[in-house]
């Protein structure tokens, strides 16, 4: 859920809607979002599944330190979704394990 109004910060400055694709499904994001914040605003909380046990992982530190939220973005695996800004048309995949370089296929 987005915080549209805030007693201290005022109105959410993010105004322009864009479309990103999560596992090929179009999802609405706002320009200025990070990938993770756009996912969370849409109720999507699993960024990846772990290599060994295929367990879901989401945001943990949200400042690019812990690497728990890595996803495959425009064909590049292991991108920290919590600090990577969204771009219109960005193609994001819930990463399975260590991911693969899709461009190199």
């Amino acid at each position: 859920m987005r915080v549209v109004n805030h007693p201290i910060l005022g109105e959410d400055p993010k105004k322009r809607k864009i479309t990103i694709y999560i596992d090929n499904k179009p999802v609405e994001a706002m320009e200025g979002d990070t990938i993770a914040s756009a996912l969370w605003a849409n109720g999507i909380k699993a960024c990846r599944y772990t290599p060994k046990n295929q367990e879901p992982r989401g945001i943990f530190c949200c400042i690019g330190r812990c690497n728990d939220c890595i996803m495959t973005v425009d064909g590049i695996p292991n991108i920290r979704s919590c600090i990577t800004p969204v771009k219109d048309g960005m193609r994001i995949k819930t990463q399975k394990g260590n991911g693969t370089w899709e461009e190199l296929k």
């Binding site: 859920m1 987005r2 915080v3 549209v4 805030h6 910060l9 959410d12 993010k14 979002d33 990070t34 993770a36 914040s37 969370w40 605003a41 909380k45 699993a46 960024c47 879901p56 992982r57 989401g58 945001i59 943990f60 530190c61 949200c62 400042i63 919590c82």
Partner: peptide, 20 residues
Amino acid sequence: LPGIMGAGAAQTLVNIHRVL
């Protein structure tokens, strides 16, 4: 499990990214 995070992480989400 997703949904368990640092308090500072949640603070970043709310106050910077404006998402609960």
